[in-house]
Amino acid sequence: MLTDPAYLTEILINGLLAGGVYALIAVTMTVVFGVLKLFNFAHGAFVTVGLYCAVLATSLGYDPYLAIVPAALVMSAMLWLLYVLLIDRIISRPTLTQVIFTIGLLTAADALIEMIWRTDPRVAPSITSGALFIGDILVSKPRLVAFLAAALIGFGFWAFLKWSWWGLAIRAVAQHGQAAQLIAIPRRATLALAFVLSGVATIVAGILMAPAITVTPSASYVYLGIAFGAVVIGTKGNVLGAMLGGIIVGLTEALTIALVGDEWKDAFVFALVLVFLLVRPEGLFGRPANV
């Protein structure tokens, strides 16, 4: 079966499409890691929030993609509030304290979603629902849309960081911390911006994914491990690296499913991460140095 070129192509395409979304989640996590130096376990919860925004849209009779703009606006405000009230205090604390706090946030967010929507599985069908056939190759349309949108947002992030004034400010704060304030960069506002943008982008990733999957509150944990892995492979703090890391994880997963079995995919993805940690801990784009 593996000698069938259509099958192989299909597997690789599936891996690529999945990887694209992982890439976006990894990008936002790497920004938070690199800029706020925050080990954020709650990152998975942002994905789940996005998924349920889509579910909400469906229950109100709208196509889930329509939730993107309103969710982005509302969530920006809420994330900014979250930053100012809580996150700002946490980032100066040691890693382990951050871990406990973000786990608490993850738990509370998931629980809140359970309180509203219970644990019943939901679907968020959209006009893009369905599959596309390119010859003998099957491609899921929502996944394709999610991939394209994620790629767009991911590159948008990269461009923003590279070329805009605020992007520069974010990078300055990431690399030079307190010193950035010496050149009149408003530290707190910059950090808040980085946090809010990352959070919103992650939520949007969730909305994009919703039509392609069945939504339950336990989604948070699935993407957490993958995001960590992709960030490590792509170098902590490096946006393009995170995108590449996400793609690599997606392809590894797809190949494992085809060659070994779906039930082993976690083990192989983590084995890949472990190998990377040992062979090239600084990631694909890093310089060999202490973290």
């Binding site: 079966m1 597997i11 099957l138 899921s140 069945t214 997963e253 079995g261 779906d262 039930e263």
Partner: peptide, 21 residues
Amino acid sequence: EVPYKFGTSDMSGLISRLRRT
């Protein structure tokens, strides 16, 4: 036998295989 991980949201790999079985 085609085992899959419980809670998997992406079954495209499985479907690919089943289409050719």
